[in-house]
Nucleic acid binder design. Structure first.
Length: 872
RNA sequence: GCGCGAUUAGCUCAGUGGUAGAGCGCUUGCUUCACACGCAAGAAGUCACAGGUUCAAACCCUGUAUCGCGCACCA
C-alpha cells in the first residue's frame, strides 16, 4: 500500500482508472454469457452536440444502473451512439459555409454539401462521446452506433419501404407546419405554442350587393388578407342571417368574395365574422373544402408575401407586411380599431420563429401498433417512473394525428421514392431498372423516424437475442412523445416486443433562479469545467443527490461542491484507516463476545442501509440512494463510529483494536461497493489503496455486492440491544457537549466530569465517552457536587466541574429554559394520554411508547427542578 | 377549457398517519495527531389557506389561493 495524499486529487485518479477499465475490456458485453442480461441503450445525443448538465444527469443515472447491475452479477450492455440531428446539423454546416465561403447549400449542390457535412461530423462530431468518457460512463464503446451508419440507414429505409407497402405511409397534399427559417415541414411535436402580445384588428368590408352597408370582421393577421377567398358567419347568427350568399369587397386586392355560413364560427368571438384564408390556416382550409372555395397561397416558403396584385405588400417579410397592411387599411378608412390582444402562436422548436400553416405535399405515417402500445403501459408491461407520466402518455396516444415524416433537408435519410414523368411512384431500397427516367424524392426523413428504431436497429442478431428487449430507458420528459412513445410503437410493430421494460423520466435542470438553462442567458455551466473543479465523481454525486423524481432540479454549484467534499471525506476516512495498518480479511471473523457495541451497532446500521438502498434502486430513487449513503457515511460512520473508535485504536494491544479494524474494513469495503455505481473512480482507487482488491488486484467494478448480513453469528436481539445502547451513548455525549458549550468551555479544554449513573455501562463505552466529551476524569458520585452544572441523560446525570465559572444567574436562566422545554413535551404527551379515545383506539405499542415518554420527561423535570432549587 | 405537479427553517429540498428533518447560509467555540473540502454547539418552522376523515394529519379526502408544466384552443 502506498501512502494516501491528504486531499483527494480526482483528475489523475479518474483518468487512470477509466483507462484501466477500457484496457481490461470491462465494459464489453458478451452476448454468449450465461449471466442474466441487463441492457440500456443511450438516448443518442446529437453527433455535433456538446455535453450539458441534462446529459450529465441522464447518463450518470444510466451508468449507475449499469455498474450496479454488474455488481449484481448481470451481463451488462450499455449501448452508446449519436444521432445525425437533421435540422440542427444542417443549419450548423450551412452557417459555417456561408461564413467561410459565402456560399449556400444550393450553390454547391447536394453531393458537395453532404460531403461538407460528413467532413464537419468527422472534425467536430463525437466531442460529446469523449465527454461522456470523462464522466466515467461504462458504455460498450465497441458497439457505438450512429443513425447515419450504413447498416442503420438500411434498416431505416427498409422500414419506410415496408410501411409504405403496408399502407402505413402515404404521400399527400396536406396542411402542414412550415418553418420559414429552416424551409421545411415539421411535425406537430416540433411546434411550440407561445403566448404572444399582438393586436386584434377590426376591419370593415363593404357589402357588394348593398353599397353603403358594411360587415366588420376581426383578425390578427391582416397581411394575409389578399389570400382571403370568403368571409364566414355562423348559420344561426341572427345578426347576419340575411347576408349569407351575398358578397363583400375584399379591400386588397379589391375583389368580391362570398359570405358563407359555417358552424365552425364562434358567434361570441370578435364580431362573429371570420375572414377565411384557406392556404394559411388549418381551420380555414377545412372550411374551404366544405364550401369548395379557392385556395390562394400568398406566402413564399421563406415567409415573404407573394401577391403581385398588391405591390405594396408583395415581397415584404410577413411581419413588415402586417404593419404595411394595417397602414393601408387605415388609409382607406377600413380599419375600425386595433385592440391589444394576447394569442397563442406556434413557434418552430428549432428556429424559434412563428411557423406558417401551409399546404404542401409531404409524406405521412399512420402510427402502427397503437393499441398494443397503449395496453403495454396501462397493464404495466412497460413501467414509467414516476408512474404519473402514464396518464400523459395515454392522452397523447389516444389523440394521435398522422406524423409528417418528410423534411425539406439534405442531411438525413433520403426518401427511397422515385417519380417518373407519368406520375408513377416507385418505393424501394433501390431505384427502378430504368433509373434514368426516374427522379428520386429530394427530401429526407425526420430524424425521429430513424431514432425510433434505436433500441433494436443498433443491435445485431446475437446481441438482440441476448439483450432485447432492453431493461431500462432513461430520458427527459420533454421527449416522451418525440421518442419514447414512438419507440414503443416501432418496437411492437417491427419486433413484436416492447423495446424496454422500465422508463425513467427525469425533469429539467434549471438554474438557481428556476429559469431554463440556455445559451443566450449564459446560465448553463460547462460540465467539463465542473469536472475539472470538483471531479467527475463529485459532479455525479452532487447532481444525483439533488435529483428528486419528477420535479425540476434547481442547480447550484454549491451542490457540486458538496459532492466533492463528500469525496474528500471518503478519501480521508480511508486515509485514517490506512494509518492504522494493513487491512484485515473480511467479513468479520471475531465472535460476538469480542465485539464492542459500537462495532455491532455500525455493522447492523450498515446492513439496514444496504437493504434500504436496494429498495430505492428498484424504483430508481437516485436521490434517496445518494442521500442515504451520504448520511450514513458522514454521520454514522465518521462522526460517531470512527470518533468513538479512536481511543481504542490508540491502545496498541489486543482485541478491541482488532475488532475495530475488522469492523472498519467490513463497513468501509461495503460502503465502497455501494458507492461505486455513483462514484466509480474514487471508490476503485480506494479499493486498491486499502488492499480490498485482494492479491489478484480485482476491479471493484467487477466485485459482487456484499451480502446483506455482515454479522450472521450475532442474534437480531443482540444487534437491536447494541444499537439502542450506542444511541444512548451518543445522546449522552451530546448532552454533555451541549453543557460544555453553554458554559463556554472551548472545545480544546478538558474538564472533570462526575456521573450519577442510572445504568451500568462498560469500560469501552466509558473510554469513548471521555474522549468525545474531552473529560479528563469521570468519577461516580451519589449527589450533585458543589460548583457544578448537571444534565440528565439516558445514562444518568452528568455534572461538569465549574469551579470559578459558575454564574448563578446564567445557570438559573439555562435551567428555566430547559424546564420550559421539558414541560411543553410533558403537556403534549399528557394531553394524548388523557384522552380515553386515544387509550382505547390507538395501538397498544403506541400507547406504551407515550407512557414511557411521559415517565422519562417527568423524571427529567423533577431532577432539573432539583438543580434549580439548589441554586437557592 | 382539460390534465399534471408544487407550496415544510433565510435558501435548496427530504419527509406515506404516532416527539418536525438535512445540506447550505447564519451565530459561537475549536490549527483535538483522517479531513478547515474539517470538528463541536446553537438560533431559526401557524408544514399555503379553509373544511372533513381519524384516538391521532405536514402526510388521507374535499375545496380555495398562488406558482410552474403539459395538452387543446376563438380567427
Amino acid at each position: 500500500m502506498s501512502e494516501i495524499p491528504k486531499a483527494y486529487e480526482p483528475a489523475t485518479v479518474e483518468t487512470k482508472w477509466y483507462e484501466a477499465w477500457l484496457q481490461a475490456n470491462c465494459f464489453q458485453a458478451n452476448p454468449h454469457s450465461p449471466k442474466p442480461p441487463f441492457s440500456v441503450v443511450i438516448p443518442p445525443p446529437n453527433v455535433t452536440g456538446v455535453l450539458h448538465l441534462g446529459h450529465v444527469l441522464n447518463n450518470t443515472m444510466q451508468d449507475a444502473l449499469c455498474r450496479r447491475a454488474r455488481m449484481l452479477g448481470k451481463e451488462v450492455l450499455w449501448l452508446p451512439g449519436t444521432d445525425h440531428a437533421g435540422i440542427a446539423t444542417q443549419t450548423m454546416v450551412e452557417r459555417h459555409l456561408s461564413k467561410t465561403q459565402g456560399l449556400g447549400r444550393r450553390d454547391i449542390g447536394r453531393e458537395k454539401f453532404l460531403k461538407a457535412v460528413w467532413d464537419w461530423k468527422e472534425k467536430h462530431g463525437n466531442l460529446i462521446i469523449r465527454q461522456l468518457k470523462r464522466l466515467g460512463c461504462s458504455c460498450d464503446w465497441s458497439r457505438e452506433r450512429f443513425t447515419m451508419d450504413e447498416d442503420y440507414s438500411r434498416i431505416v429505409l427498409q422500414t419506410f419501404v415496408d410501411f409504405y407497402k403496408k399502407g402505413l405511409i402515404y404521400r399527400g397534399w396536406r396542411m402542414v407546419n412550415w418553418c420559414p427559417a429552416s424551409l421545411t415541414a415539421l411535425s406537430d411535436e416540433e411546434v411550440i405554442m407561445k403566448a404572444c402580445k399582438s393586436f386584434l384588428y377590426t376591419v370593415r368590408y363593404e357589402i357588394v350587393e348593398r353599397p353603403g352597408t358594411f360587415l366588420d370582421i376581426a383578425t390578427t393577421r391582416p397581411e394575409t388578407l389578399p389570400g382571403d377567398t370568403a368571409v364566414a358567419v355562423h348559420p344561426e347568427d341572427p345578426r347576419y342571417g340575411d347576408l349569407i350568399c351575398l358578397h363583400v369587397w375584399r379591400p386588397f386586392s379589391r375583389t368580391s368574395i362570398p359570405i358563407i355560413a359555417d358552424s365552425h364560427i364562434d358567434k361570441a368571438f370578435g364580431t362573429g365574422v371570420l375572414k377565411v384564408t384557406p392556404a394559411h390556416d388549418k381551420a380555414d382550409f377545412e372550411i374551404a373544402q366544405r364550401h369548395k372555395l379557392d385556395v390562394l397561397d400568398v406566402l413564399h416558403p421563406d415567409g415573404t408575401l407573394n401577391c403581385p396584385d398588391v405591390p405594396r405588400l408583395d415581397g415584404l417579410d410577413r411581419f413588415q407586411a402586417r404593419k404595411e397592411a394595417v397602414k393601408m387599411l387605415e388609409e382607406s378608412g377600413a380599419l375600425i380599431k386595433s385592440d391589444p390582444y394576447e394569442n397563442n402562436v406556434g413557434y418552430s422548436e428549432r428556429a424559434d420563429v412563428p411557423i406558417e400553416t401551409r399546404l404542401s405535399e409531404q409524406w405521412f405515417l399512420r402510427y402502427p401498433a397503437v393499441q398494443e402500445s397503449l395496453d403495454a403501459v396501462r397493464e404495466g408491461s412497460i413501467r414509467l417512473f414516476p408512474p404519473r407520466w402514464a396518464k400523459v402518455y395515454e392522452h397523447w396516444m389516444e389523440n394521435l394525428q398522422d406524423w409528417c415524416i418528410s423534411r425539406q433537408l439534405w442531411w438525413g435519410h433520403r426518401i427511397p421514392a422515385w417519380y417518373n414523368k407519368d406520375g408513377k411512384i416507385h418505393v424501394d431500397l433501390s431505384p427502378p431498372a430504368d433509373s434514368e427516367n426516374w427522379e428520386q424524392d429530394s427530401d429526407v426523413l425526420d430524424t425521429w423516424f430513424s431514432s425510433w428504431l434505436w433500441p433494436f436497429a443498433t443491435m445485431d442478431s446475437a446481441t438482440r437475442s441476448k439483450f432485447y428487449p432492453t431493461s431500462v430507458l432513461s430520458t427527459g420528459f420533454d421527449i416522451l412523445f418525440f421518442w419514447v412513445a414512438r419507440m414503443i410503437m416501432a418496437g411492437y410493430e417491427l419486433t413484436g416486443e416492447k423495446p424496454f421494460s422500465n422508463v425513467i423520466i427525469h425533469n429539467l435542470i434549471r438554474d438557481s433562479k428556476g429559469r431554463k438553462m440556455s445559451k443566450t442567458l449564459g446560465n448553463s455551466p460547462d460540465p467539463l469545467q465542473l469536472i475539472d473543479k470538483y471531479g467527475a465523481d463529485g459532479l455525479r454525486f452532487g447532481l444525483l443527490r439533488i435529483a428528486p423524481t419528477g420535479q425540476d432540479i434547481r442547480f447550484e454549484e454549491k451542490q457540486i461542491e458538496e459532492g466533492r467534499n463528500f469525496a474528500n471525506k471518503l478519501w480521508n476516512a480511508a486515509r485514517f484507516r490506512q494509518m492504522q495498518g494493513p487491512s484485515s480479511p473480511f467479513p468479520i471473523s471475531l465472535n460476538h463476545s469480542e465485539l464492542p457495541d459500537i462495532c455491532i451497532a455500525i455493522t447492523e446500521r450498515f446492513d439496514r442501509l444496504h437493504k434500504r438502498i436496494a429498495l430505492a434502486w428498484e424504483e430508481f430513487r437516485f436521490h434517496e440512494i445518494a442521500n442515504t449513503l451520504y448520511d450514513f457515511f458522514w454521520t454514522d460512520y465518521c462522526d460517531r463510529f470512527v470518533e468513538a473508535a479512536k481511543p481504542h485504536l490508540q491502545e496498541t494491544t489486543s482485541s478491541p483494536r482488532e475488532a475495530i479494524l475488522q469492523t472498519m474494513d467490513c463497513v468501509l469495503s461495503g460502503i465502497l461497493c455501494l458507492l461505486h455505481p455513483l462514484m466509480p473512480h474514487i471508490t476503485e482507487e480506494l479499493w486498491r489503496l486499502l488492499g480490498f482488491c485482494g492479491s489478484d488486484a480485482n476491479f471493484l467494478l467487477l466485485t459482487p455486492l456484499p451480502v446483506e448480513n455482515s454479522l450472521p453469528h450475532v442474534s437480531e436481539q443482540e444487534k437491536e440491544r447494541a444499537i439502542t445502547a450506542i444511541d444512548r451513548l451518543y445522546e449522552s455525549i451530546h448532552a454533555v457537549r451541549t453543557l460544555r458549550a453553554e458554559f463556554k468551555i472551548p472545545s480544546n479544554k478538558s474538564v472533570s466530569l462526575w456521573i450519577r449513573p442510572t445504568t451500568d455501562w462498560d469500560s469501552a463505552d466509558q473510554m469513548a465517552f471521555k474522549a468525545l466529551t474531552r473529560a479528563e476524569t469521570l468519577v461516580s458520585v451519589s449527589s450533585a457536587p458543589k460548583e457544578s452544572a448537571g444534565t440528565v441523560t439516558p445514562l444518568g446525570e452528568f455534572f461538569i466541574s465549574l469551579t470559578g465559572l459558575v454564574n448563578v444567574d446564567s445557570e438559573r436562566r439555562r435551567l428555566v429554559n430547559e424546564i420550559t422545554k421539558v414541560e411543553t413535551e410533558i403537556s403534549k404527551v399528557k394531553s394524548k394520554l388523557g384522552s380515553q379515545a386515544f387509550i382505547s383506539n390507538a395501538p397498544p405499542a403506541v400507547v406504551a411508547e407515550h407512557r414511557s415518554r411521559e415517565t422519562v420527561w417527568e423524571k427529567k423535570l423533577e431532577i432539573l427542578r432539583g438543580y434549580l432549587a439548589s441554586l437557592g
